[in-house]
Design a protein around this nucleic acid. Structure first.
Lengths: 354, 354
DNA sequence: CTCTGCGAGTGGAACGATCAAATCATAGGG
DNA sequence: CCCTATGATTTGATCGTTCCACTCGCAGAG
């Protein structure tokens, strides 16, 4: 622990440490940044002085001289309520922790309401951040173009869907694989006619996931005619589409592009007195809070967000040290969390402690 | 928009602007920080030069000189999955936006695993942040004591429960009032025997909320014997407690300390074939994602998190400019969001767009 | 006519670190 | 014995801004 200190006290500086250790400022600086340059006994003496005084280098001074802020900017968008955006929580936390290991910090910012690109430029010019992490792959194209234009390093969470020759590193989760896992799981527990409930066709992510369902169905040799539904991502819209599918009388499996949609299906089942996991199987996507607590528990595709964060940090370091990145993108595998909406014997939901 | 610029280009500095405007560096500095010192025509000339060059002051240099980083530190704790922690999202976003209005930014950090206090001290000594926002009022005591000791400014989201003569500003939401609203609502829709499902007695927040239930019941002249339950904050524990209460045969109202607990009650009702909102009324707390999407929709107490964030920023500014803060604490009022778990005619849940 | 006061603006120093180049031993080769 | 190579450390300059003390010109008082 550090000694008690008042605001009025000056924190020790390099010069203070140097004087105490009987060396020059530069030697102390080297002890911190290039310890191999020092003779062993000198190094020990300096380190002792640093510990004794509780010295921590001043970020501002270092930043001014080296032009590296050791901060990365993360645009923090308002969570759309009712969607699974809250799962970014998991991602952000790991990002913060992993960055901290190399002395980096995460700076949150939000774009101006009128010009969302404004925030980026300001931070760059003010040399407040070294690089950016972009998570919003929808509005991503304008952002990535700006950053490339001004030569700012960045890594995205999400593939450059609309830009085949984009030259920035990225990390993403294989959504098609996730939907494929979901569909195969539904088939394996006995469902044949497995419907897809997805987003509008304009969503690249949505179409990617849908393709996984399609592949699994094709592999199983099942006709998908009139089984692939596209709608808006809210509970009620999904509920109504589910009713239409159930009216058909043959559909018993539901693979969904989001937990929100899957929960809508559960609502429809409740309204008809059908038992999820017994009379029909439902799988969501994202393993959000809603999947945990919904009744009787929702099987869902879980994205390895912690792993995404770690990969992103790795890529950031590579980019910042100007190392070539090969390959440019990393595609990670999601997993399936099985709950009672597909398997009645699965553990009860929500048995976690506070 | 700013002109195109490469990484290799130097951003303009004060000196560049000064030369262009034909004044000294200090005059440009004054134009930015004390414009009233300049003659009107000079000011205009300088501002024109700034706009022309697209100048933005260098944060590091300013920070080094003024010892103000214009950043506030926010400890970002891992969200306990299955709890309502994800609602911090709303809070954080407003915090970021409001701080941005005065040119401040939010720096995320996480404490070391072994010593959670370590992160604070490091950031202070490195002069990386000007102040802290503390949201974790449980582990808060050790943190607040450290910060007071080193003389670091901070504001907490949460009352200093265990420290009656704490001298730091705080903002909190009146949990007792929220529980009172919930209970009065249940009474008003016809329930008489309203049970309380809350956390263990060790939780100050939990006991505060419980007191609101107790007050509302006392005001209505209803005996609360055997109606106040304490349990752990998870769906399954609540489900089992709800069954016990329902076995009694008289209990029809459930006011809960969290949405998690309330969802557990909903599960119990489903298992008995009872209709939420008709055969029994349930109210949660926090208006989390789960309340939005659970079936048939969960009435819940909503905390004014946006307002909390704005208040906190106000207090931060007061503290940083050394203004006296009076009163030290701000207690905000929660509101009730009515859904079908208490009123069958309420709008359907989850009809928000993505 | 000089002196004081004030508004407007200037120039040098400093914040605390790192970079680049100089210095000083110390040892080995011719 | 000198000269060079090498390792270890020091010295001065610098990053871009703001603080501080100062100059300059001009108006009004004595």
């Amino acid at each position: 622990m550090s000694p008690t200190r008042r605001l009025t006290d000056q924190y020790p500086t390099l010069a203070t440490v140097a004087e105490r250790a009987g060396v020059s400022r530069q030697t102390v600086s080297n002890a911190l940044n290039n310890p191999e340059l020092l003779r062993e006994d000198t190094l020990e003496r300096v380190q002792a002085a640093i510990a004794e005084l509780g010295y921590t280098p001043n970020r501002a001074a270092r930043q001014l001289r080296t032009r590296a802020s050791h901060m990365i900017g993360l645009r923090f968008e308002p969570a759309q309520e009712g969607t699974s955006n809250a799962l970014m929580d998991r991602f952000v936390h790991t990002l913060v922790e992993t960055m901290a290991k190399t002395g980096h910090h995460v700076l949150l910012f939000s774009g101006a309401v009128d010009d969302p690109l404004d925030g980026y430029d300001d931070l760059l010019r003010a040399t407040a951040v070294d690089a950016f992490v972009i998570t919003d792959t929808y509005a991503g194209t304008a952002e990535t173009e700006l950053l490339r234009r001004v030569g700012a390093p960045f890594v995205t969470f999400g593939r450059p869907w609309d830009d085949p020759d984009a030259a920035h590193p990225w990390v993403d989760v294989d959504g098609a694989r996730g939907a494929c896992l979901a569909t195969e799981h539904l088939l394996s527990v006995g469902h044949r006619r497995v419907a897809w409930l997805g987003w509008e066709e304009t969503s690249r992510i949505g179409e990617d996931r849908r393709s996984g369902w399609r592949r699994a169905m094709d592999d199983a040799g099942i006709d998908t005619a009139r089984l692939g539904i596209r709608t808006t991502d809210n509970v009620d819209a999904a509920r109504m589409e589910a009713h239409k599918l159930l009216d058909d009388g043959t559909v018993t499996g539901f693979a969904c592009a989001s937990d929100t949609l899957a929960i809508g299906v559960l609502h429809a089942l409740h309204e008809r007195g059908l038992r999820p996991g017994v009379d029909a199987g439902v799988v969501g996507f994202d393993d959000s809070l809603g999947a945990h607590v919904s009744w009787p528990g929702l099987t869902s595709v879980r994205q390895p967000l912690e792993q995404v964060a770690v990969e992103i940090v790795g890529l950031l370091h590579a980019v910042l040290s100007l190392k070539p990145v090969e390959p440019l993108g990393r595609l990670l595998e999601p997993t399936l969390v099985v709950r009672r909406s597909t398997v009645p014997e699965a553990p009860r939901p929500g048995t976690r402690a506070r």
